[in-house]
Write a protein that binds this DNA or RNA. Structure first.
Length: 172
DNA sequence: TGCGCGATTCTC
DNA sequence: AGAATCGCGCAT
C-alpha cells in the first residue's frame, strides 16, 4: 500500500486493512503472506489507551512520525507487537495488527512472521521485507464486526468501551 | 538508580 | 488462576 493509505483517519485505516495481505520476506528469502482479519485503532493525544497519550517517549516516538511505518514494541517482556503508524507526522496514531488468517493474536502474528525490534521505525516496503498488498478483492462490509479493544482496562471505562477493534469474519 | 507493570500467551 | 520475562516510564 502507498504511504497515503496510512495517512488518514486511524479507524478508517484499521478497517480498510482487513482483507489485505500482510507480507514478509523471511531471512531465508521465502515470502509469506496472510490476510489481515483483526486490527485495533489507537488514535491521538486524548486516547487514554494509547501509548502516546502522555506525549512522546523513547518507546512510542514512532507513533508521532510519518504514516506507513512499523511501530514494534515488546509486551510483557515476551511478545513483540506490530503496529502501523497512521495520520500525519506529529499526530500520534497507529493500527495494531492483532491477527491474520490462521494466526490469532498479536504476539502470535509477530512470531509467525518473525517480526521484532529490527522492524521498528522501518517504512513498510518490500525492500525492508515487511509490507502490505491489496489483491483487489473487495470484502463485504457486513462481515466486519466492531468491538472494544483488548487488554486496555487501565484506560478507564470511557476509552476502554470505544469500539475501535475491527474483525473481519469471512463468510463460509 | 530503582522498581512496578504491561495493546500477551501458555500451562496448570 | 498464575507464570513467564524485561524494557520502559516514572518516581526517587
Amino acid at each position: 500500500m502507498k504511504q497515503g493509505f496510512y495517512g488518514r483517519d486511524t479507524r478508517v485505516v484499521a478497517e480498510e486493512l482487513l482483507g489485505k495481505h500482510l507480507c514478509r520476506r523471511l531471512p531465508s528469502g521465502r515470502i509469506i503472506r496472510g490476510r489481515i482479519f483483526e486490527t485495533e485503532a489507537y488514535d491521538g493525544f486524548e486516547d487514554r489507551a494509547s501509548h502516546a497519550h502522555k506525549g512522546p517517549t523513547a518507546r512510542n516516538v514512532v507513533m508521532f512520525g510519518p504514516p506507513g511505518h512499523a511501530y514494534v514494541y515488546l509486551c510483557y517482556g515476551l511478545h513483540w507487537i506490530l503496529n502501523f503508524t497512521t495520520r500525519e507526522k506529529g499526530y500520534p496514531a497507529a493500527v495494531l495488527l492483532r491477527g491474520v488468517e490462521g494466526v490469532e493474536g498479536p504476539g502470535r502474528t509477530t512470531r509467525h512472521f518473525q517480526i521484532n525490534s529490527r522492524h521498528n521505525e522501518q517504512v513498510l516496503s518490500r525492500v525492508n521485507g515487511l509490507w502490505v498488498e491489496d489483491d483487489g478483492r473487495e470484502i463485504c462490509a457486513g462481515a466486519i464486526h466492531r468491538a472494544p479493544r483488548v487488554g486496555i482496562d487501565y484506560a478507564g471505562a470511557e476509552w476502554a468501551a470505544k469500539p475501535w477493534r475491527f474483525i473481519w469474519q469471512p463468510s463460509r
